[in-house]
């Protein structure tokens, strides 16, 4: 039996959240559609939504559960912004039933921006679900995502997001990704998203497919995508996975050391810095440090980010160079920012 004290807390807390939801509704009514409204109204609605989510984050499960039915109703609100807010609020903490509700709404909503948000909410929430709930939701999500990808009316951007998100559902999504890849209608259109989708699965076995994709298309942009996908696999790899990733790490190393293309070298450095052994790979560390000063643009940015990610010790020369970049008014802002972050990390 619920205690009197708890009942009061529940009542008060629920009221506060309900008041916030009502306030959010009012603000969203003022804000209307996101593309057309006054900035102040849109900003106020954004802040109200943020506050509601903050409160939902901080409150306990009982209050959140008590509040959830209102949010589920919000998923079918006629205003797109309200539906987006409801989905974000429902998935602010991972909960199987709530993810299911958003998945259901995703199938029936026709607004691309709302659907885009629903997919992002589902993905964020699923990643925090414990097993076995996660497994059940993943199975449903794979079916829903694949179906929507195949719907002729689905907007291309949403279709692309769904393909990459399928990968984010893990190895269980590999058959669905493979089916889409082999589909005459969608295979070529989704070609550029396939490496990211395969990498997002985190399955070391996908490494072979990614390397094959890399070899199949010589365009630099596509190959950079393959390299980033390998980086994603490396990020999630355990020590036991590393042998399976051997061909992929060889590909990265050759792109760094032989530098066939500055962009590919940059992507490879970023990806390789996810490798558990990268910090002790003398050749790669040497290449990063020696090229840092000569490279420019995105390639230098990649070397800077690798220095930060690998947490390499800074020699006097490197430190001085980083200080020069940080303080230079002519260096690209992001170079200055990453240099500052590295120096801060070594304070």
């Amino acid at each position: 039996m619920i205690s009197r004290a708890f009942a009061i807390v529940l009542l008060l807390g629920g009221s506060a959240l309900a008041a916030d939801l009502a306030g959010l509704q009012r603000l969203l009514e003022q804000a209307g559609a996101p593309g057309q409204t006054e900035d102040t109204a849109r900003m106020a609605a954004f802040q109200a939504k943020r506050e509601l989510l903050r409160q939902l984050c901080q409150t306990d499960d009982a209050l959140r559960n008590a509040f959830a039915p209102r949010l589920v109703t919000g998923l079918s609100d006629p205003r797109p912004e309200m539906r987006i807010a409801a989905a974000q609020a429902l998935t602010v903490k991972p909960k199987e039933e709530n993810v299911d509700c958003v998945l259901f709404a995703l199938q029936t909503d026709s607004n691309p921006a709302v659907r885009w948000t629903f997919v992002r909410c589902v993905m964020r929430s699923i990643s925090g679900l414990p097993e076995p709930a996660r497994g059940a939701v993943v199975t449903t999500a794979i079916e829903v995502f694949e179906d929507i990808v195949r719907e002729p009316a689905t907007k291309l951007e949403l279709r692309r997001l769904l393909v990459v998100s399928l990968g984010g559902l893990g190895p269980a999504a590999l058959p669905a990704i493979g089916a889409l890849q082999g589909d005459r209608r969608w295979g070529s259109i989704l070609h550029s998203e396939l490496p990211a989708a395969l990498g997002a699965t985190g399955d070391p076995g996908a490494c072979v497919d990614i390397v094959a994709l890399y070899e199949s298309d010589s365009s630099v942009g596509f190959r950079a995508g393959c390299i980033q996908a390998i980086g994603e696999l490396l990020r999630r790899a355990s020590a036991a996975d590393l042998p399976a990733l051997g061909p992929a790490t060889d590909l990265l190393r050759s792109n760094i050391l032989q530098r066939p293309d500055p962009r590919l070298a940059a992507s490879a450095v970023t990806a390789y810095s996810q490798c558990p052994g990268a910090r002790t790979d003398g050749q790669i560390v040497g290449a990063i440090c020696s090229r840092l000063q000569d490279a420019s643009g995105d390639e230098r940015k990649a070397y800077l980010r690798a220095l930060l990610a690998l947490d390499l010790p800074l020699g006097p020369e490197t430190r001085t160079f980083l200080e020069i970049i940080r303080d230079s008014e002519t260096a690209p802002v992001i170079h200055r920012k990453v240099a500052a972050a590295i120096l801060t990390a070594h304070e």
Binding site: A33, P34, G35, R50, L53, W116, T117
Partner: peptide, 13 residues
């Protein structure tokens, strides 16, 4: 995530 979503919402509207 909220900012990212709002940016997409505004640019894709």
């Amino acid at each position: 995530g909220l900012i990212e979503g709002a940016l997409w919402g505004f640019t894709s509207h």
